[in-house]
């Protein structure tokens, strides 16, 4: 009944308003454009223009300096046949999958922190610290933890009789070891988003359900998770985007002198950096960047489609 009447009101309302606005102010006042100009110019100069440059460069064979020559789809066909590219692609996919494992961890931790009656802020700060710490400092600490000879991790493993590994010097483990650091570094942001989501869940629901005899675990799955799903969706989308773009951890943790794991552990963006900025092949680098953009767009579009099945908006 109510929904019908609002629908009717909506149908009746807008045309009148629209007519009035159009009649009163004339078509698109110039100052309207003037007012959005700063934002638009900033966007155009910092994003649109570089994007167009990158896009055109991806169809060119570029020398280190100066204009390139048009080569059509050559960079792209070379890319598809380049084992190095597919390996980097695989590494980025593995890394993204690992970071997605961090989402459930973040949900559970966020729910636990939310339950605390005291010291909630302290825990939030603790979990957020890695986010605001310099990646260089982070990498130095983790390199020490992962060190094959003197590392904390191998020492801890040796206590329970598990043989140690050269975690960041062995390509078998490096991307996983970096993934763990990635989870640790992104936990703070995810907790903030999920914490905000948790706070918007009405406490009455918990009171009512506990009167009906629901336990904590049941409440978590029946109330918390469904009502938190929009936040979880947001966190998932952001995680996938940032994980596919990961560059810094490989750069700071594996790019030491002669690291034996680097060759087989490059991510897409690291490969882009190497081609464009170390080997002076900007055209090829640009093609990598465009492909990555396409992959991210597809992955995100896919998630938006899939969300209908599991995200609950009330």
């Amino acid at each position: 009944m109510t929904s019908e009447s609002t629908a009717a009101a909506r149908a009746a309302g807008p045309p009148a308003r629209r007519r009035r606005r159009a009649g009163g102010l004339g078509p698109s006042p110039w100052w309207g454009y003037a007012m959005i100009a700063p934002a638009f110019i900033g966007l155009a100069a910092l994003y649109l223009w570089p994007f167009l440059k990158t896009f055109t460069k991806s169809f060119m064979d570029t020398p280190a300096f100066g204009p390139g020559t048009w080569t059509g789809l050559d960079n792209y066909t070379e890319l598809l046949g380049d084992g190095e590219f597919w390996q980097a692609f695989g590494n980025s996919a593995v890394y993204t999958a690992i970071l997605l494992l961090g989402v459930p961890i973040a949900i559970v931790l966020a729910a636990l922190v939310q339950q605390l009656s005291r010291g909630r802020a302290v825990y939030r700060v603790l979990y957020f610290l890695p986010v605001v710490t310099l990646p260089v400092a982070v990498s130095m600490v983790w390199r020490f933890i992962y060190n094959g000879d003197f590392g904390l991790l191998n020492w801890a493993l040796s206590l329970v009789g598990i043989p140690g590994q050269y975690w960041v010097a062995d390509a078998t483990y490096a991307i996983y070891a970096i993934g763990v650091v990635g989870i640790w570094m992104s936990l703070g942001i995810n907790l903030i988003i999920l914490g905000a989501g948790l706070q918007s869940i009405p406490p009455e629901l918990y009171e009512a359900s506990s009167l009906d005899g629901a336990g904590r675990v049941r409440q978590f799955f029946r109330i918390t998770l469904p009502l938190l799903s929009p936040s979880v969706f947001l966190v998932t989308v952001l995680t996938v985007i940032s994980a596919l773009q990961m560059f810094d951890l490989v750069f700071v943790m594996l790019r030491s002198v002669d690291n034996t794991a680097l060759d087989d552990s490059k991510t897409i963006v690291y490969l882009f950096y190497e081609k464009a900025f170390v080997q002076f092949d900007q055209g090829y680098g640009a093609a990598i960047a465009i492909v990555l953009l396409g992959v991210i767009m597809i992955a995100t579009a896919l998630q938006f489609r899939l969300q209908r099945r599991w995200v609950f908006y009330d």
Partner: peptide
């Protein structure tokens, strides 16, 4: 080994 030298530079 090379791995040891990756973890701790020469």
């Amino acid at each position: 080994t090379l791995q040891q030298l990756s973890d701790t530079e020469a």
